[in-house]
Amino acid sequence: MAKEMMGQVGTEDASDTGEDLLQLVSFKIGEEEFGVDILFVREINRMVEITRVPKSPEYVEGVINLRGKVIPIVSLRKRMGMPEKELDKDTRIVVVELEDQLIGFVVDAVSEVLRISRNITEPPPETASGVDAEYITGIAKMDERLLILLNLNRLLSFGEREVLKEAA
């Protein structure tokens, strides 16, 4: 239960400096900017060679060697149904830990680590631009920028995984 809660950006656990502050890692995919709770993020790596895994879900790029551990890599673009893009020097792998497992996300670029006040977050709108609303816990508005807060557990929910495994 506790884990479930922690999976969502925007709970009290998310901040170590008081309940009104959120610490996020922000990254870009296309023109959209996303944020995930920094507590989930283990490290951010440059692109490395990915070994394709046959018959895996389409958005699974494959596996990599992370210092002796084999971890799966998921393309956030593909996962959220956005068009594919060539890898470039800005492409990063954001390694997160979810349910005791390391998983890497391919993102276009990592922007910065942000501290934002919970006050500026809003619940997700009915239809978020291009992204399936169920992965979104909220929207943060900062001056000109709009940050989409992602729910990683939802993104890789167990139910979905089971279905995909069967489909594979």
Binding site: T51, V53, K55, V63, V70, I71, I103, A168
Partner: peptide
């Protein structure tokens, strides 16, 4: 090494 829980048992793949 296993492919981990996330990928689970992939058909035709015993591990990595």
């Amino acid at each position: 090494k296993t492919l981990g829980k996330y990928l689970g048992d992939m058909q035709g793949i015993a591990g990595s």
